[in-house]
Structures are given as structure tokens and as C-alpha cells.
């Protein structure tokens, strides 16, 4: 069977190595161009199930600022980022919130992907 090459840019660190992944249909043969193991892992993941993490904000009442920054505990499938962001934007919070507090479990019904507060916000005195 013919071997095909798919190219990626590794985003696991600031170097940004250009990666080439050789595959026969769905079977990965080889990864080249990576400076370290994380690059090979990234290319395999990108080929089989590309995922991304992101941060966004939700409204918060009674705090110094009007927005609370939140992040994901685990990356979501790349093609569901916008859906995930829209779901998170339905949330709202009220001070006090502690950094690390889970605001929503199993985002998009995916086990283990939680929405987590990235800072503490105390109530205004």
C-alpha cells in the first residue's frame, strides 16, 4: 500500500518543529522532524484525535472585576472548540470563587473535562 506523508507544526513548545508523519491509510509508520519525544506524541495525537485546550471568561457578580477567567482541565476535540466555548459562556459565578474551583464537570458530556476557575475572586467589601 502507498505511504503518505502529512505535515504538522509541533505546538508543544516555542521551538515549533515542522513534523512529517508517514502513514498507510490509518496506520502510522513513522514521525520525522521532531526534536524530542513530545513532538512524536503530538503528531500521533494530531493524526488520530486532534485536541486543543483554551481559556475563556464567564461573568462574575460581586467581585473586583466583571469577568472570571476559566480554563479546561483537559483538552477537547479540536472540532468541538467553538461548541465548548458556547457551552461555557452559559455559566456565571458569584464571588467568592477560589482558584482551582470546578465550575462545570464533564463539559460536552466528555468524561473528565472540567471547567476550572483560574483565579481567586473575593467579594467586594
Amino acid at each position: 500500500m502507498a505511504t503518505e506523508t502529512t505535515s504538522y507544526t509541533c505546538i508543544s513548545c516555542p521551538i515549533g518543529c515542522p513534523l512529517q508523519l508517514e502513514h498507510e491509510v490509518d496506520t502510522i509508520r513513522e514521525v520525522a522532524g521532531n526534536n524530542c519525544d513530545r513532538g512524536a506524541k503530538y503528531a500521533r495525537q494530531e493524526f488520530t484525535d486532534p485536541r486543543r485546550s483554551f481559556s475563556t471568561t464567564i461573568p462574575i457578580a460581586g467581585a473586583l472585576h466583571r469577568r472570571l477567567p476559566v480554563r479546561l482541565s483537559e483538552p477537547v476535540p479540536k472540532d468541538r472548540i467553538l461548541e465548548a466555548a458556547q457551552r461555557i459562556h452559559l455559566l456565571s459565578a458569584e464571588a467568592p470563587i477560589r482558584c482551582g474551583e470546578v465550575l462545570l464537570r464533564d463539559l460536552l458530556s466528555i468524561d473528565g473535562i472540567d471547567v476550572v476557575a483560574c483565579r481567586t475572586m473575593l467579594p467586594l467589601e
Binding site: 481559556s55 475563556t56 477567567p69 480554563r71 482558584c99 483560574c118 483565579r119
Partner: peptide
């Protein structure tokens, strides 16, 4: 950093990937 809510901070100093607000806190 309070406004840099994306992650990518702290890999050298804390050996884990934090968002800006988490690093600042």
C-alpha cells in the same frame, strides 16, 4: 498576567503549565 488568561506560563519556574492569572496568584 491577570489579563493573560491563556496557558503557557510557569513551565520553567513551577514545572507545570499555568494560565497567567494562576501564575500571578
Amino acid at each position: 498576567l491577570r489579563q493573560c488568561i491563556h496557558s503557557g506560563f510557569g513551565l520553567h519556574h513551577f514545572k507545570e503549565e499555568l494560565t497567567g492569572p494562576e501564575y500571578a496568584e
